[in-house]
């Protein structure tokens, strides 16, 4: 649908699409970013994961030339965010936490305006607007004023606006905050499409499932510092690996079960409601081994499964608190975007 071209203008593949070194941003009394190093390879997705106020948005603002850093350096698409800011703006797309679209224009007019401001020309702007409205399932609403759109439709239009000039690097600042599950999944699929077409994406989110699904690599950010970085599997692995869960047929056999499994444990197993939880060292063969041992002791098994830690566990371990939005600043959850209305007509 896009006619390809998403790689258009991408940096040479041997250079990272986004690279920061010791990036700092401080205000009078607040250090919003403390020496952040990031590296995103072309055509991949980096998930910047952290609670509200962690510095995610500050990082996005610096990388999109909206804010100057107070220390360190950053290059996007091979261009310095300070020295080459003007040239860089032609190579990036930004979709923010707010659906930054003009309510008093129609969907088509919004996209055409953005195209004109990217200087892709009147005809091309019009063509792109039509294509994107179709791709984002907004064709029928294209001639309607955006103030009649639902929250999900506004977000889709906002993302479409970020794609008008087919930028090789895309910044998405909490793109699905406040959206209902159906709209979130739709937006995820669109982002995956873009990545498949070669676009590099930096995505901030406070949703772990979002990072898990979309991001090739995840950087966990808290209090302005990256406190962990790696693939989703790396991060989960860092928690100490898998946990075997055995549901016993007969709760009274719990003690026998614990004894049978004690040799394959990393740490002492725990028992709760007839489920024995066993931290294990390795994944391979662990179920077969456990079944053999339990069988040998005559312990009946109702269910047996190996669980890997979730990103929630990772987050809790790294930051010492669950990944819920922090104090205040929850307006997205209560604001108008939280209410998903069906389009009128």
């Amino acid at each position: 649908m896009d006619g390809g071209g998403s790689n258009h203008g991408a940096p040479p593949s041997n250079r990272p699409a986004i690279e920061t070194e010791g990036l700092c941003k401080s205000y009078k009394d607040v250090q919003a970013l403390r020496s952040v190093d990031l590296r995103v390879e072309p055509g991949t997705v980096l998930g910047l994961l952290g609670p509200n106020g962690a510095g995610k948005t500050t990082a996005v603002r610096i990388l999109t030339t909206l804010l100057p850093p107070t220390g360190g350096s950053a290059r996007v698409a091979g261009l310095d965010v300070v020295a080459d800011a003007a040239a860089l703006r032609a190579k990036i797309g930004l979709a923010g936490q707010y659906a930054a679209v003009d309510e008093n224009l129609t969907g088509t007019e919004n996209l055409e305006m953005v195209g004109r401001l990217y200087h892709i020309g009147r005809a091309e702007s019009r063509g792109r607007a039509r294509e994107l409205l179709e791709r984002f399932d907004l064709t029928d609403a294209g001639e309607r004023l955006v103030r009649t759109y639902s929250g999900g439709m506004r977000r889709r239009l906002d993302l479409a606006a970020a794609l008008v000039a087919r930028p090789p690097v895309l910044f998405l600042d909490e793109p699905t905050t406040g959206l209902d599950p159906r709209s979130r999944i739709g937006l995820w699929e669109t982002i995956e499409d873009r990545v498949a077409a070669g676009t590099t994406v930096l995505l901030t989110t406070q949703y772990l499932d979002e990072a898990d699904r979309l991001a090739d690599r995840i950087a966990v950010i808290d209090h302005g510092s990256v406190i962990a970085e790696g693939s989703s599997d790396d991060l989960k692995g860092r928690l100490g690996g898998e946990r075997l869960e055995v549901t016993l047929e007969d709760r009274s056999q719990a003690e026998a079960g614990v004894t049978a499994l004690s040799e394959i444990c990393r740490e002492p197993p725990s028992v709760e409601d007839g489920i024995v939880r066993v931290p294990v060292r390795r994944h391979q063969g662990v179920i077969a081994e456990a079944v053999r041992r339990l069988d040998a002791e005559g312990v009946g098994i109702d269910d047996i499964v190996v669980r890997r830690p979730t990103l929630d566990d990772v987050f809790l371990t790294l930051t010492g608190r669950p990944p819920e939005p922090e104090d205040g600043d929850q307006e997205q959850a209560t604001g108008e975007h939280a209410i998903e209305r069906e389009p009128i007509g």
Binding site: R61, T65, L66, A90, Y98, A100, D102
Partner: peptide, 17 residues
């Protein structure tokens, strides 16, 4: 307030416009 200024400032348009 609605973030449109952020969008405009991230575009390769004239700053004065």
């Amino acid at each position: 307030r609605k973030g449109l200024v952020d969008r405009f400032r991230s575009l390769p348009m004239a700053r004065s416009a």
